[in-house]
């Protein structure tokens, strides 16, 4: 009882400024896939759960700028949403239901924005959205802005705006 109370108190302390938001639309299945890569391998923070990524229309229309040194400078427009369906295991069959979604929303100026993105998790069943106040997500995703082990590995060290993959336009 005492132990449970302590954990409860701690949760309160750490989440007292957390707000339940309604920032994620329900129609993401109609959005284009962000990447067609098969995402079933281990990534810190996502483990080896099967993942399917989507990008909304605002983000899908965006084309990155090219800087003088041939590097691309990605800066997705405000309102861009990139949503990752996270499945319970590392396998997927059509009809499977995701466990939750990890979402990044471009919202510069939002009080909890990190790298101009708001980082959220949404429970599939309860539809509950929780904003990440910790730097857990951005600490890893900042690796996307330089050479990294995933996708095209960003060998050109483009500023990818915290996304490990680029929209392949399909």
């Amino acid at each position: 009882m005492k132990k449970t109370l302590l954990i409860f108190l701690l949760s309160l302390l750490y989440s007292c400024d957390s707000k339940l938001e309604n920032l994620i639309p329900d129609n993401h299945e109609k959005w284009p896939l962000f990447t067609h890569d098969k995402l079933d391998y281990f990534i810190p923070g996502h483990e080896n759960n099967y993942r399917i990524s989507y990008i909304n229309e605002i983000g899908a229309k965006y084309k990155p700028q090219k800087k003088d040194n041939d590097q691309f400078l990605y800066n997705y427009p405000e309102g861009t949403i990139i949503l990752k369906e996270i499945y319970p295991s590392n396998t997927y069959q059509p009809g499977d239901i995701p466990e939750y979604y990890t979402v990044m929303i471009k919202k510069p100026g939002h009080p909890h924005a990190q790298g101009d993105w708001v980082w959220l998790v949404k429970n599939h069943e309860s539809k509950e959205e929780t904003i990440f106040h910790s730097d857990m997500c951005v600490n890893c995703h900042e690796g996307a802005n330089t050479q990294h082990p995933y996708g095209d590995k960003n060998l050109g060290k483009d500023f990818r705006d915290y996304t490990f993959f680029t929209f392949d336009g399909q």
Binding site: K2, K3, L6, I7, L9, L10, S11, Y14, S15, S18, G45, V121, T130, I131, F132, H133, S134, M136
Partner: peptide
Amino acid sequence: TPNPNNIPVAFE
């Protein structure tokens, strides 16, 4: 176990 706000676990 990862949790969104990286809440530590406290216990007696």
